[in-house]
């Protein structure tokens, strides 16, 4: 956890420095803003992980001499087969087509998308997340 946090924060720091250099040499807005955005992208999760890493015991995956017995027990709950990602994907496809070929496709997109969202949520509840 600590190493992941450091890693992300270092990325953010690097882009912060590059952004400053870029701003004071090139005076160009678009690139500066995108570099600042990248810096925040690293610093936000990186800072969050670093904050938590001091309050949590390390993950077994980060311990040099951890064995499977140290991580024994449930890793996580994984979903089995599910039709909803497919329907959501097709909903997105029809939504994109709506923008090109007109609003008559919108009901199909909405029906597919909504049913996928509702179905996915119900499935998660019934599957019983951990």
């Amino acid at each position: 956890m600590r190493i992941s946090g450091t890693f992300l924060a270092a990325i953010g720091f690097f882009f912060g420095v590059i952004a400053l250099i870029y701003w004071f040499t090139a005076y160009e807005d678009a690139g500066f803003l995108m570099l600042i955005g990248s810096a925040i992208l690293g610093l936000l999760p990186g800072g969050y992980y670093l904050w938590w890493s001091r309050r949590m015991r390390p993950l077994e995956g980060d311990v040099d001499d951890a064995d499977m017995s140290d991580g024994a027990g449930v890793i996580d709950a994984f979903p089995g087969s599910s039709i909803w990602p497919f329907l959501l994907g097709m909903g997105a496809l029809f939504a994109a087509l709506t923008f090109i070929f007109g609003l008559w496709l919108a009901p199909i997109a909405a029906a597919l998308g909504l049913s996928a969202v509702i179905g996915g949520v119900i499935e998660s509840r019934r599957g019983g997340a951990v």
Partner: peptide, 11 residues
């Protein structure tokens, strides 16, 4: 159906 997965055994 959701299934829980446990850590594999050490060999």
């Amino acid at each position: 159906m959701t299934t829980t997965v446990e850590t594999p055994e050490l060999i």
